[in-house]
Design a protein around this nucleic acid. Structure first.
Lengths: 346, 346
DNA sequence: TACAAAAGTGGTACCGGTTCCACTCCGGAT
DNA sequence: ATCCGGAGTGGAACCGGTACCACTTTTGTA
């Protein structure tokens, strides 16, 4: 159990002071003669020296970021985590992972532990609560990037997301173009940024087509639990003339629950009901029928999040918040089709 | 941007020395009078003091573990990560996440960065290579727990996994009991512990039933890429009399690829081919037909992994490696049935 | 009553980096 | 010739905890 070499060992073997080694380590932090740098680099290689992250963090110069996601059970977040870890690795940055399980209470606790960690930055999918905790985090100098969601009252925070409104609108347009007039939507809570934006897009598409908006067809449901199944059941229990002929599931966490309910009720897709869901998973094309989806460019979300938070940490970005919106792609499969004349009750 | 209180601030407001505060922080590290402890606790609460993780790690007394998984795209690993993070949170432990993407080269690099982090322990799904790097990790005092997989030549490492051999055997028995005699298996590489154990279980079930083992029906394929699809294609391209009537997909990472290939080839399940897959996902019952699965108790794997690694870190466990095997559950759904007499060519 | 052992407390040297500052050169401008 | 400024370097304080050790007070026991 011999211990790892320290910066002083390197300094000794290179015949220089620790200051110089440190400067070599953090390129650009001070002048180093070319010849000296070479000696130091050689010594580092010879000893297999690697600077310890903990020592750096103690000085506030760490390269660790916190990643706070809602829930790794949701394939969307799982893949997002995968890509973010990947991007971070490529930049020599380590990632401390936490999950909130969509619980503001846990989120608050987690926020505190992230502070102890003296992480330089945080990438998060906020629950929507804990507003003052988030701003306190920023006050102590931690750079913050929201991904996928945002919080309206935190105007000074960078946000990376897809074009939620446009995506929902285009999916809705697609259904309208197929001939549907009663389109339902299951979204996240309307208090969340994604819920609100997607419903807004859905509404604008309807309005543009001259279709009146029916509040009964809009279901903003929680991310946790089986709220999707309940919403589906409620929608299908509507009187025949009010019942939707198409459904947009704009709540990634409730897709599975909603689909299961549809299968259990024996709903025939797309004859009785056309379905489009948010987020493309490996299994969306394995179910019967294969699902039409809004595909989120997860790698882009990851790349921009990491770029942003690191850019901030290194002070390479101008002040003022950045809002990055990437385009999502609508992928048409068999679950969306023209409404069945037999089923139509216009 | 005011800074957080330090241990010295606490000592000052409590009217004691930092030593005492430290002792209160790490309960059991030394004597503290009850009255004093109360004063210190009050001061901590008043100042909202939280010890910084980095400072602790510098002394080798950190409570951070590394979690090194193959790939968060695989729902099995994603859910495992979710549970491990959860268990760790409950114990006040932070998790640094890395992924190997099944690449030994990346694994090696990642191993090094985990060392810099001065983590006290690591939970990992090893690729199978980098044997000496793993043991070097142990040499420097990092406690190591392998989860899901193991490495045969690292005998001194704790391992948490399901009963791979028994699980594969019981699934195979199930198929045999249904009347199948030509059962194929798609597993991970036979050089991996899971691949070898599952194939062994499969073979023992066949042998017990007096069915000869046909090497052509055993496909140990890599975790990455589309090897599952290729294996399926190859199996179905066999001459009619050799073609399997049942398939056990014992490689969680290749389930999706294999299933997609089956759908693309228009194979009717279970009439033409019975299918059982390893790992129960949210979507296994949404596909048509719902899949019979081996359900892995992911929460148990997570709990035991975290317990083990923390137990080691705190020296609360006797020396000598621990091998924890938890039971997996076979869940019968519609994808496994008796072979079609029409299709049978015995 | 005496005296050793244990309880309680404080001082301070670490851990391994970063960073500020002082100092020595050196070349170029005045 | 003199001065100035910047490149290059080393010394040492510092970040925020932990842990060892020395010291004083109890407590228990012979």
């Amino acid at each position: 159990m011999k211990k790892a070499p320290t910066i002083r060992d390197v300094a000794a073997t290179a015949g220089v002071s620790v200051s110089v080694v440190s400067r070599v380590l953090n390129d650009g932090s001070g002048p180093v003669a070319v010849a000296t740098r070479e000696k130091v680099v050689a010594a580092i290689a010879e000893l297999g020296f690697r600077p310890r992250a903990a020592a750096r963090e103690l000085n506030g110069a760490g390269l660790t970021i916190g990643l706070m996601l809602a829930d790794l059970t949701n394939p969307f977040f799982a893949r997002l985590a995968d890509r973010i870890v990947w991007e971070a690795r490529g930049r020599g940055v380590q990632v401390v992972l936490t999950t909130t399980q969509e619980d503001p209470h846990i989120e608050a606790e987690t926020l505190a532990t992230l502070l102890d960690r003296s992480v330089g930055g945080v990438i998060a999918t906020p629950t929507g609560d804990n507003i003052d905790q988030w701003s306190r985090l920023q006050d102590v100098g931690v750079d913050l990037v929201f991904v996928d969601r945002s919080i309206a009252s935190l105007q000074n925070t960078d946000v990376v997301s897809i074009q939620n409104e446009a995506s929902a609108a285009s999916a809705t347009q697609h259904l309208i173009a197929l001939g549907h007039r009663r389109v339902a939507v299951i979204s996240g809570p309307l208090s969340t940024s994604t819920g609100a934006a997607r419903v807004a897009g859905y509404q604008s598409a309807l309005t543009a087509a001259g279709i009146p908006i029916d509040p009964a067809l809009i279901r903003g449901v929680p991310f946790r639990g089986d709220a999707g199944a309940d919403a589906v059941a409620a929608l299908l229990a509507l009187p025949l003339v009010e019942r939707p002929t198409a459904l947009l599931v704009a709540n990634t966490a409730q897709v599975q629950s909603s689909m299961r309910q549809l299968y259990q009720m024996g709903v025939e897709i797309p004859r009785e009901l056309s379905v489009i869901v948010f987020d493309d998973n490996p299994w969306t094309e394995l179910v019967t029928p294969p699902l039409s989806v809004i595909r989120q460019p997860i790698d882009m979300l990851a790349r921009h999040s990491v770029d942003l938070v690191l850019g901030r940490m290194q002070g390479k970005l101008p002040v003022g918040p950045r809002f990055v919106e990437v385009q999502a792609e609508f992928v048409s499969r068999s679950s969306s089709a023209a409404p069945d004349p037999q089923e139509s009750h216009v």
